[in-house]
Amino acid sequence: MSLMDILTIVVPSTLLWAAPLIFTALGGIFSERSGVVNIGLEGLMVIGAFTSIVFNLTFFDTFGNATPWIAILVAMVAGAIFSLLHAVASITFRADHTVSGVAINLLAVGLTMFLVKQIYGKGETGIISKGFSKIDVPVLKDIPVIGEIFFQNTYWTSFVAIIVAIIAWYIVYKTPFGLRLRSVGEHPMAADTMGINVTKMRYLGVMLSGALGGIGGAVYAQSITSNFSHATISGQGFMALAAMIFGKWHPLGALGAAIFFGFAQSISIIGSSLPFLKEIPNVYLLIAPYVLTILALTGFIGRADAPKAVGTHYIKGSR
């Protein structure tokens, strides 16, 4: 097997697994940059995956081939609405952010499985008839070498994810909104003094994370699992959280980390069909994202510092 053959298998697979992580990790960035810890990313992905699959199954006859894309939008809205629970609890009711996030995860799984049983009368949904399928990107696919590796047998969602990451970077670092978002997460009192509505910014941050987490779940369900059950989302949300930290709360850093984790995930699955990789027990690949994140936090791979005010409540008038 030549290097070229290997790359044409590994690269599209990596991008496939990375796409949901990219979306969700970006969501985490918006939330944490505004100062709200979001352990609930996993639960938000569950909601997104559930919504997209149910929508896809129900409305395929109406929307035809556009269904997966519309399902993503619906999942985005569902995620944003569901994340309001986290926002209300952790911002308005001053709940511990981590505890509220844990509750989000528990609630998402309970609620969706309850609904699945109620709607379908069994523990899982049917298989969707139209998910995201492999495509060749027009024009770009004809570029020699690069075209074959990056733009053939790949998925639109991966490219959308990369573009969204660049947009997120622009929003967070180059717009007034991004500046306000970051200031609220670094020093809410200073931000408040400058006339920024801290509560509003934090609600927006959490809802953006809900929307992006919903998208992430929808992309995962419609391109990888094709149905919804209790095991559809099993750790992707926490891996996205890891990508966010490994990427040092920076959209492009998270993009890189998510692609790397996507690579580790895809290798742990397709690795057995590749030479030299099948020698490595895949347990190393499975735990790599988590171990690397711990090392990154410890400072062995550059210092990763969270936004200053993350996890704290801003109570007007208190010092």
Partner: peptide, 10 residues
């Protein structure tokens, strides 16, 4: 159970 956690946390 999830709701109980929410309410205790809040």
């Amino acid at each position: 159970i999830a709701l109980i956690v929410f309410f205790v946390a809040s």
